[in-house]
């Protein structure tokens, strides 16, 4: 298409759809203004006192931060959050990537049934399978006297249920786009299976695995329902503590939950900044496969 034609087409597009364009921009701007308001309300409140209907708090203070830190034992909570999410990332990658390799490379009987098993946990709401899962775990506790529910181990297991399918669903298209001829060629040249894996596949998989891991990390830190149902008091992650402190309003100063919320927000934003170094924003919701445009 020539430059001239493109320009004509562009002006035609502008002229033809002006009201809807304005409406779209207005909606987007309205959305962002309110979003900023919501985020900054929490940030300002966590540092303020005597707000009572003024535009800004009358007194600025950081003591709610130290209160929240001690009252909720946030050091321990952060440690639990970190251990749980890193463990979930490692296990889900170790289990999910081989499975997606088999799904990407082979056609076999009952493949659709297997795909369905990997798809369902993403489609069914977490509360709906979390309640039977937690019940089964508590039952297991009473029968074997091994603490699964109520412990960090149980929280990790529960969080693996959506994490493994997520890795499989994002890695399968990624592996499909790696040309199988590369592997065949290596085999023709006499490479052993292990050598093919370490020298050919692994280097090609690294970008996809990194992207999938960071997405699982973000999801696990943010996963509320499953952790809430399976955690005991000393295995709660930050988002569950945050929910507890908001829903138990009146017991503690609301600024303490804000301090926790801001801490959570800071953690998520750090993760987001890291994530965006490896994936582009649309991939956060769609898939890991590189889009080679732009």
């Amino acid at each position: 298409m020539s430059e001239e034609l493109a320009a004509v087409e562009e002006t035609a597009r502008r002229r033809g759809s002006r009201p809807i364009v304005w409406l779209a921009w207005f909606l987007l701007a309205f959305f962002f203004v309110n979003l900023a308001g919501i985020v900054f309300s929490a940030v300002v409140d966590s540092f303020g006192d005597n707000w009572f209907g003024n535009w800004l708090p009358q007194v600025w203070t950081t003591h709610y931060w130290s209160d929240a830190w001690h009252a909720y034992d946030l050091g321990q909570v952060l440690q639990v959050t970190l251990i749980v999410s890193v463990a979930v990332v490692i296990v889900s990658v170790l289990v999910g990537v081989p499975a997606s390799y088999a799904l990407a490379r082979r056609n076999f009987p009952f493949k659709h049934a297997i795909m369905l098993v990997f798809l369902l946990p993403v489609m069914v709401p977490p509360i709906a399978y979390g309640i039977p899962l937690a019940t089964a775990m508590y039952k297991f506790n009473t029968i074997t006297h091994v603490q699964i529910a109520n412990s960090m181990f149980g929280v990790i297991l529960a969080n693996l249920v959506p994490a493994i399918p997520f890795v499989v669903l994002t890695m399968t298209p990624f592996i499909e786009q790696i040309d199988p001829k590369v592997e065949s060629a290596a085999r023709m040249c006499g490479a052993s299976t292990r050598k093919i894996f370490t020298r050919i596949l692994l280097p090609l998989l690294v970008p996809g695995v990194l992207a999938a891991s960071i997405l699982v990390l973000v999801r696990t830190v943010g996963m509320f329902e499953l952790t809430y149902l399976t955690a005991g008091t000393d295995s709660e992650t930050l988002v569950v503590k945050l929910f507890d402190s908001i829903s138990g309003a009146g017991i503690r100063a609301p600024q303490q939950s804000d301090a926790m919320a801001v801490l959570y927000m800071g953690m998520m934003l750090v993760l987001l900044v890291i994530a965006l170094r490896f994936v582009n924003p649309t991939q956060l919701v769609t898939r890991v496969a590189e889009e080679r445009d732009a």
Binding site: L28, L35, G37, V39, I246, D258, L272, L276
Partner: peptide
């Protein structure tokens, strides 16, 4: 820039959004 900004509320999640909404 716009797509990056839009990712923020997804990562914040419903619990944090609820906390901010209660104030805003």
């Amino acid at each position: 820039f716009i797509t990056t900004m839009l990712v923020i509320p997804i990562t914040l999640g419903t619990v944090l959004t609820a906390d901010g909404m209660l104030k805003f």
